[in-house]
């Protein structure tokens, strides 16, 4: 699939934009943390779309945010 672009997102409704990003983000997160992928993706979708698009292109940025989300999730569940 071609990379998700800001112009592709711009033509969609806000909740559909998150859906489009989530569909791209989920497999990447699933590869890192299969059991928590749904929750981590849900958390990360609260981030601005422009930053989410950057994370889709940058594994380092994505990994850093996934680790942050994991820490928050573990703190929440404790």
């Amino acid at each position: 699939r071609e990379p998700l672009s800001a112009s592709m997102l711009a033509s969609a409704l806000p909740h559909v934009q998150k859906q489009m990003i989530g569909d791209r983000l989920y497999p990447l997160i699933y590869a890192l943390h299969s059991e928590l992928a749904g929750k981590i993706t849900g958390m990360l979708l609260e981030i601005d779309n422009s930053e989410l698009l950057h994370m889709l292109e940058s594994p380092e940025s994505l990994n850093a945010k996934v680790e942050e989300a994991l820490i928050m999730l573990q703190a929440h569940q404790a």
Binding site: K18, Y26, H76
Partner: peptide, 22 residues
């Protein structure tokens, strides 16, 4: 607490409702 529903969970191919309040 009452926050057991956080965070909203994403499922591929299922319409995302995490931001329904917008």
């Amino acid at each position: 607490g009452s926050s057991v529903n956080w965070p909203p969970e994403f499922h591929p191919g299922v319409p995302w409702k995490g931001l329904q309040s917008i």
